[in-house]
Amino acid sequence: MSSSNWAREALAVLAKDIRSEYRTRYAFSAVLLFAVTALAVVSFSVSPYSLDADVQAAFLWIVLFFSAMTGLSRSFVREEESRTAMSLRLTTAPEAVYMGKLLFNIALQAAVAAVVVPLFLVLMDIAPTHPGLLAWATILGTLALASSSTIIAAIVSRANAKGAIFAVLAFPVTLPGLSSAIRATTAALRGEAGSGLGLVAGVAGPAGAAGDLRSLAAYTVLMIASSLLLFDFVWDD
């Protein structure tokens, strides 16, 4: 299949998913409700000043991780449960289905992060020392979470015991990306002297964070590449 066909099909799947989501609020409501509730409960019950930067960063990514796990898995599960997966299989190349779902999950997770991260900073009364680094950690962490949860969702959607398999798969697959995102976020929140990341012009931060951002980018590329190779087997019977 030519790349233009492939891209056209993937964009059609993305547009269809956005339209469906806009009409039903199937995933966004659940994700946002979870994220805002978790943020509010912790910020009201724990004094933000009592938490170190690493705990704050871990808390932020726990919220984003469980938001992703709550909502992003639905993209495939819903196709299977409503039995629309059959019409997709009959008409659309597997790689285009994967890419369309990945793009939708990236958009959904980015929308959640756009709400959660500013809310987190306000509720926890945090002024990040390196806002540029925080932005990059959020962007790359979002891509990493979306890429891993998309293929996990595809696998889980074909299983009978969806809950059990999801938990078993999600933990080891997302851990490397998640730990890099937490470390980079910790560096962004902690008031350490900037030494220049050398990754993106104008983004300053502790030197060690550059490695974490590169790890996140590499993890995302690896997840997408391996998912494209695996997806045919997952999607077909």
Partner: peptide
């Protein structure tokens, strides 16, 4: 995929569209 047109009881469309 291009060669097949199918009608089946298991075939379902998007209810919200």
């Amino acid at each position: 995929r291009r060669a097949i047109g199918m009608v089946s009881p298991d075939l379902t469309f998007y209810d919200e569209l």
